[in-house]
């Protein structure tokens, strides 16, 4: 009886296999490093637009890079969308990305394409946002503090214990801050600035946007973050005002990378093209993402910080995004700044 069964199953299976056409839906495994609801919006939007089955994982850009490296010999993901551009550049440096030139390239801003050129087309800019800081109006008032306007203001002794930034070792945002200060003031003076700032810092958070979220909840006064993060907190109803420092400031470019050796390269390219379209990018406003989008025709919110009116430095992504320079600056910060008494 059992043996009969054993023989029967394969026979039936073969018969069935010949009559039923193989079912193979198109799939896309999508790693996302932007905020959760934006990631979800992109996943759902792409499923609606193409019918391709999307499997999404949201992780920070650092975590995703770690995962890509670990999975390098057997990639599970197809595309990596969102998150600050440095890890994308790093991935390109290590050859984890697949070079691709999208037909949508003509519609993109120059800064987005420069990002692609720096990485041999393994990545491309999809949005950008300027660095700055935000403060909690109520807490500032309760402590009788003046409104800060420049980077230099943050060094004033009255702000002692009121400023928060992320630890550059763990956060891309904070590393951008460090690199910005170094480019703005020069390396020696920049590190003097960081040492002065260190005295006023109440906590180096682990995650990049945590300082402004703490400020939003009244747990902190001033948080050094990307301006669009500060604006998003204000839009959620928190008493947050954002400041673009008067000396000028750096910026980030969010990246997108097709993962080399992924299992669904066609779907990945479709997603890539779709994500660069004006229509897709305009939908970012639905989820309070106030970054400036890469597509020239994408809509922007009146709340969004206007990059035109902000004094932007000429940020050297190639240099400060490289692994060696990053290691050197972080080590210097570790050895010279973080060990000082506060």
């Amino acid at each position: 009886m059992r043996i009969a069964h054993l023989l029967l199953v394969p026979t039936l299976a073969v018969a069935a296999g010949m009559t039923i056409p193989a079912y193979a839906a198109e799939k896309l495994t999508y790693y996302c490093s932007a905020q959760e609801d934006w990631c979800q919006l992109m996943a759902d939007g792409f499923e609606e637009a193409t019918g391709i089955d999307v499997r999404m994982t949201r992780k920070s850009s650092g975590e995703t890079l770690a995962q890509l490296k670990a999975e390098a010999s057997n990639p599970k993901g197809d595309i990596w969308w969102g998150g600050t551009g440095d890890p994308h550049l790093q991935a390109a440096e290590e050859g984890l990305g697949e070079a691709y030139e999208s037909p949508m390239r003509g519609e993109q801003n120059d800064w987005a394409i420069r990002q692609a050129e720096a990485a041999g087309n393994q990545t491309i800019g999809i949005y950008s946002g300027a660095l700055g800081y935000g403060y909690n109006e109520d807490v500032l008032k309760a402590n009788n503090l003046p409104v800060p306007e420049c980077w230099a203001d943050l060094l004033k002794p009255e702000y002692k214990g009121h400023v928060q930034m992320a630890n550059p070792n763990s956060s891309g945002t904070a590393y951008t801050t460090l690199a910005t200060i170094v480019q703005l003031f020069g390396e020696d003076e920049g590190f003097e600035f960081m040492k002065g700032l260190h005295k006023n810092i109440n906590q180096y958070t682990k995650s990049g946007s945590a300082p402004i979220k703490a400020a939003a909840r009244g747990e902190n006064t001033i948080g050094i973050v990307f301006l669009h993060d500060a604006v998003a907190q204000a839009a959620s109803g928190f008493p947050i005002k954002s400041v673009a420092p008067c000396e000028g400031t750096g910026y980030e470019i969010g990246g997108m990378t097709i993962i080399k050796g992924g299992r669904n390269p066609e779907s990945a390219q479709k997603f890539y093209d779709w994500a660069l379209s004006a229509e897709t990018q305009s939908r970012a406003l639905e989820v309070n993402a106030f970054q400036v989008m890469s597509n020239k025709n994408a809509q922007s919110s009146p709340l969004a910080p206007d990059l035109e009116s902000i004094k932007l430095i000429d940020y050297d992504f190639a240099k400060y995004g490289s692994a060696d320079e990053r290691k050197r600056l972080l080590k210097k910060w570790d050895d010279e700044v973080s060990v000082l008494p506060q």
Partner: peptide
Amino acid sequence: GGNYDVLSTEIFFAIVGAQN
């Protein structure tokens, strides 16, 4: 944690952080 770093979080950030 504030500025009171402990091993477990340091391990996590050594892996996922910018240092990687």
